[in-house]
Write a protein that binds this DNA or RNA. Structure first.
Lengths: 236, 236
DNA sequence: TAGTGGTCTAGACCACTGG
DNA sequence: CAGTGGTCTAGACCACTAA
């Protein structure tokens, strides 16, 4: 059960994404929305504030709220979005190939990444993401086995995130990301269709639960020509 | 004159960045802050919400607000931060070399990027960013001359953003960013210390004013080994 | 149970925009 | 001037956590 302002947020967002509210057009004023939705001004403002934060509208004092035309086609790799969620918005066919999947004692590297004690266990999985018939992305995931007791090939082929959130009830809070460009390794060239590129875009991702527990480390290795990061930023 | 919640935000932020509030420690409860700052609960909550959005704290229902230890050393290239603001947080000496600076009629490429009419004029500037003695970044800026009537070499060496915001009173609203990896051009190799790298990280940046006017297009071209993008993301 | 943050309401005043 | 969004207040109730 969503709160009122979340529901209103989704309602307006749907209108924007459906094109019912055209880019550049003016939203109803707060006063109008109060009677339209039958809620208090604060509730409306929370919904509008969310839309603004996520780059869908721009609010201008004395004028009103206006629909932005960005964030339409471009998929935002910024934010916390799973590959499955991205793939669903893409037109090209996507496929996930599970290359490795095992529960292992955490080695030194993994313990350091996930800040684990000795003798901790982790799930390790290596997956290749195929987009439009080409093997483009190599995903290496390490999950703290205390929070993820079981992991199957079917889950890895579908969506780990979805499994964590819906089946295990884990609440994902935030993530720290780091994007760098490195020399491609033999592993990159072995798993991906690399076509003479010698560099790889590495996206490191540290995922935390709502209670601030670090439970996942992911390394996404992209073929450089296929990598594109689209973001939206507001001036603080 | 900042609003109350912005002041309180900065006050708490200062305590976090100074280490007065250690990472992992618990902030005073909302009730305590109400009497501490003598404001209403809503005002406190606005400040805390800002801290949470920007990745400084994590709020947990029933428990309290806790200081996160990320966003400390790593400088966030995400968000809307000028090179000067970044440089001030870095230890290595930074230098900006202005290679080009002229007001020109917008060519077709520029008109398309900035959605300009024919016969519009733009300020074009090409700058090399030197960090730790190495020429690392090539910045190409195009600014709509209707909003930026004058631009000097001194301004470009210091900070264009600062000039726009303080001298011209332009209010920057948001930006759309795009990061890709491309083949390095002759221009890249001519201006930068490229050391046999054949690829370049290209950060395209479209900057809008608060009234949604697109007025600046920037292309930052980074040597791949020196590029690092650090971000913080929350789950929606 | 007491204390925490999350949601919602109602009302006030201010700053900015446009006619 | 009327209409817009921005800030601030005071109070209510709920959901969750910990002892």
């Amino acid at each position: 059960m969503d709160s009122k302002y979340i529901s209103i947020y989704h309602e307006i967002l749907a209108k924007i994404e459906d094109g019912e509210m055209a880019a550049g057009s003016k939203l109803p004023s707060e006063t109008e929305m109060i009677s339209e939705y039958g809620v208090s001004r604060d509730t409306i403002r929370k919904a509008l504030h969310l839309l603004e934060q996520n780059g869908y509208i721009q609010r201008i004092q004395g004028k009103g709220s206006f629909v932005l035309d960005i964030n339409k086609l471009s998929f935002p790799v910024s934010g916390l979005t799973s590959f499955k969620e991205l793939a669903q918005k893409m037109t090209e066919p996507c496929l996930t190939l599970v290359k490795e999947l095992e529960k292992i004692p955490a080695d030194e590297f993994t313990r350091e990444q996930l800040k684990l004690p000795e003798q901790a266990e982790v799930w390790k999985t290596v997956r290749v993401r195929q987009i439009g018939g080409k093997k483009i992305i190599l995903d290496k995931d390490f999950l703290d086995a205390r929070y993820v007791p079981e992991l199957t090939q079917a889950i890895c082929e579908d969506s780990i995130y979805e499994h964590l959130e819906t089946k295990l009830g884990l609440k994902i809070g935030f993530a720290q990301k780091e994007v760098t460009v490195q020399q491609a390794t033999q592993e990159d060239k072995k798993y991906l269709d690399f076509e003479n590129y010698n560099m790889v875009v590495v996206v490191k991702n540290y995922t935390y639960l709502e209670d601030m527990t670090l439970f996942q480390y992911t390394e996404s290795r992209h073929r450089p020509d296929k990598f594109k990061f689209v973001g939206f930023a507001r001036r603080s």
